[in-house]
Computed example of a mutant assay.
Amino acid sequence: MQLADGRGVQFALDNEGHVVRFDPETAERTALGDSLEDWAQDPDVRGARAFATRWQDRHGALAHDQRLIPLSFFTLGGTYEDDNLAVKEAAQCMRIRGPLAQTLYSLPDGATFEMSSTPPPSDPELLSHHELEVFADYSTLLIQDDDARLGEPEPAWFEALAADWINTAPGLVGIGAGRPFDVPVTVAVRRTPPPDDDVQLQQADHVTQASLALPSGRLLISMQDFGDELPRIRLTPGTYAVRVYSNGLHTMSEDGLDGEDCYHVVLWPTDEDHPAKVLRRYPEPLPGG
């Protein structure tokens, strides 16, 4: 049995018949009573009734499949004021809050994390979307499992990376970048591969693809930097295909220090082995070499 109040907080009976409260922003469970009868003794559970009555008086009743969701999450300091609340379909509210709960679940208080934005409703296959600024040391980046380490590969490993902007080692995928500075990187995690008529594939300057084993369930994008302050993206442990769309390469300055290059990384779970390869090659010499 499971119920929810207008704010999307879930109430359920556990295996022993105790009533528990499930917070969709943190995935924390809080015991509220030894039985459904105990819980029902409070006519205003955690202020839910008063809150719902106030909203209904001002804005009208919610439909049975609607919930209120904060524009700024309650867990991150958002308020219960009307201007911080929006009405959305109940399942969509859980999809929006899910990436936050996944991120916060195992983090200690005060830890730094990368926030996920809301997946566009027009793309139901998109699980989460992340926007990063990543330091591309030596014009390269590593997309890797948090526990993987590159070590000291042979010079040929970096030569292949420079030539194709793609190479792999256990637990990581190396990609090229146009500048040895902070570069914008967006990460999209999908349930399924990009569609066959992948418009981004046709429009990007350079596109590469490879497989990545992610046993830790923590994705890190950096260049041999593992500081606690760097954001980790939480994913279900497993193997993923990684496709990288490089754009804006034609904007690079002659000295390779300025440009509007950007990088879009798409991951989806796979059972197949995807060897490192170029799907679309930049027609000119790749910058940053």
Rank of each mutant, 00 (worst) to 15 (best):
residue 192 T to N: 12
residue 204 A to Q: 07
residue 244 V to E: 04
residue 115 M to Q: 12
residue 4 A to W: 05
residue 247 N to T: 12
residue 198 D to R: 05
residue 37 E to V: 12
residue 74 F to Y: 10
residue 76 L to H: 09
residue 118 T to W: 05
residue 169 A to H: 11
residue 9 V to P: 00
residue 263 Y to C: 08
residue 180 P to V: 08
residue 234 R to K: 09
residue 32 L to R: 12
residue 103 T to I: 04
residue 17 G to W: 01
residue 98 G to Y: 08
residue 192 T to M: 10
residue 3 L to I: 06
residue 256 G to D: 10
residue 228 D to L: 14
residue 246 S to K: 03
residue 39 W to C: 08
residue 283 P to W: 11
residue 119 P to E: 05
residue 185 V to R: 02
residue 251 T to R: 04
residue 230 L to R: 11
residue 224 Q to C: 08
residue 104 L to P: 02
residue 178 G to A: 15
residue 219 L to D: 00
residue 85 L to M: 15
residue 126 L to W: 00
residue 152 E to S: 14
residue 245 Y to K: 00
residue 56 Q to S: 14
residue 192 T to L: 15
residue 73 F to H: 11
residue 262 C to S: 14
residue 22 F to Y: 12
residue 235 L to G: 02
residue 20 V to S: 02
residue 247 N to D: 15
residue 21 R to S: 05
residue 28 E to G: 04
residue 277 K to C: 09
residue 148 A to V: 09
residue 158 F to T: 08
residue 188 A to R: 14
residue 274 H to L: 07
residue 262 C to T: 05
residue 222 S to P: 02
residue 62 L to H: 12
residue 235 L to T: 02
residue 173 V to M: 12
residue 216 S to V: 06
residue 273 D to T: 10
residue 214 L to D: 01
residue 85 L to Q: 15
residue 225 D to I: 00
residue 197 D to P: 09
residue 167 N to R: 13
residue 274 H to G: 01
residue 218 R to K: 14
residue 220 L to H: 01
residue 187 V to Q: 01
residue 183 V to R: 04
residue 113 F to E: 02
residue 190 R to H: 14
residue 239 T to C: 01
residue 80 Y to D: 11
residue 38 D to H: 12
